[in-house]
């Protein structure tokens, strides 16, 4: 049996191997992923981002547990966790410690946790995180929780990959407003103030609320990172379509507020599906992925056709100012 078939059949060892092949972007990984692709597109991808120490891993632990043990009597969902941590820029190695906080999921066959090093990719995700998520999707995991370290800028990547983005803050992490990086609110579908047992929750909440209002005045809505100013009529029509981010408080250590958070995630998923936003995002994501792949492939094919000496000699002409870069491009593409 091919590895892809074993993965679909629920073989956990095959799944673990497959994740490595895809993470390492090997030729076998690519061809197995081709087999898996028709089985993808069902999972709800949930990004959890925020500064180090805000309690993301603890929250992922509790959130996964809540999806496994729903209190409303619905059937438990299968949950995959992808925990991304940065690689050391010096050694290329990584210390991946998120599992330390995910002890409540041990022994549950409906949960699969995978740690991933960023391997030099900027933006909080590894280069192949999307492909790893596809493998879990094909393997039948209904919820995929992706924990990424928020560095202030890179959260946009997770917002692009995930259907639902949770931004985690905690009280007492420096000066309230300064700690809340510009841009982070724009990607949040749900804002969580974790460590609600700690002093300073009210200040953090007030600061977040003020920033939310500032970022989203009535007539300007954020469509997944893009600002859109609406007319009055449009506004009416949009009212049902637009998801207003809100603030939730949790104490991940005790699991408080986590069932509510799981419920909010489910509602966001339903919201996206109801108004076609789910498909629109899917289209946008696959479009971007396809364009990226086509570009990479075209460059690779072109490089195969043009000998290095030819390239170097044309580059030399540019350096000597005998031809311009545009003329060089014309020459290089003629080859």
């Amino acid at each position: 049996m091919k590895l892809a078939e074993q993965v679909i059949a629920g073989d956990r060892l095959a799944l673990a191997r497959m994740l490595s092949l895809v993470e390492n972007d090997t030729p076998q990984g690519r061809s197995e992923l081709d087999e898996l692709f028709p089985h993808t597109g069902r999972a709800h991808l949930v990004g959890i981002t925020g500064a180090p120490g805000t309690g993301k891993s603890s929250l992922v632990n509790q959130l996964a547990y809540a999806f496994r043990h729903p209190i409303d009597g619905s059937s438990p969902l299968r949950v995959a966790v992808i925990a991304v941590d940065p690689s050391s820029p010096f050694s290329g190695g990584a210390l991946l410690g998120d599992r330390v906080r995910m002890r409540d999921l041990v022994g549950d066959p409906g949960v699969f946790i995978r740690s991933m090093a960023s391997r030099g990719a900027l933006g909080g995700l590894a280069r192949n995180t999307a492909a790893v998520a596809q493998v879990f999707d094909a393997a039948g995991f209904e919820i995929i929780l992706i924990e990424t370290v928020g560095a202030g800028q890179g959260e946009v990547d997770i917002a692009r990959l995930a259907h639902t983005t949770i931004v985690v803050e905690a009280p007492g992490l420096g000066d309230d407003i300064q700690a809340i990086k510009a841009g982070i609110l724009e990607i949040a579908d749900i804002l969580v103030i974790n460590k609600a047992d700690r002093p300073g929750v009210e200040q953090t909440e007030r600061a977040l609320r003020a920033m939310l209002e500032l970022a989203k005045p009535e007539r300007i809505v954020m469509h997944h990172g893009r600002l859109a100013v609406l007319s009055y009529q449009e506004e009416e029509n949009e009212a049902a379509r637009v998801w207003k981010p809100f603030i939730m408080k949790t104490i991940a250590l005790r699991g408080e507020g986590v069932q509510e958070l799981a419920q909010a995630v489910r509602e966001h998923g339903e919201h996206l599906r109801r108004n076609g936003e789910w498909q629109r995002r899917e289209l946008e994501r696959l479009d971007a992925e396809l364009q990226g792949l086509v570009q990479a492939e075209l460059v690779a094919r072109w490089r195969e056709r043009v000998p290095e000496e030819t390239y170097q000699s044309i580059l030399q002409q540019v350096i000597k100012r005998t031809i311009s870069p545009y003329q060089a491009v014309v020459k290089l593409l003629e080859k």
Binding site: S87, S88, F90, S91, G92, G93, A94, L95, L96, G97, R99, V100, R103, V106, G107, S115, A117
Partner: peptide
């Protein structure tokens, strides 16, 4: 840490692990 500094990816799971974990 030494393994990380040697370029390896190290998954650390914390204290009091059972063989099953």
């Amino acid at each position: 840490r030494a393994l990380r500094d040697a370029g390896m990816e190290v998954i650390y799971t914390g204290l009091r692990q059972t063989p099953e974990m």
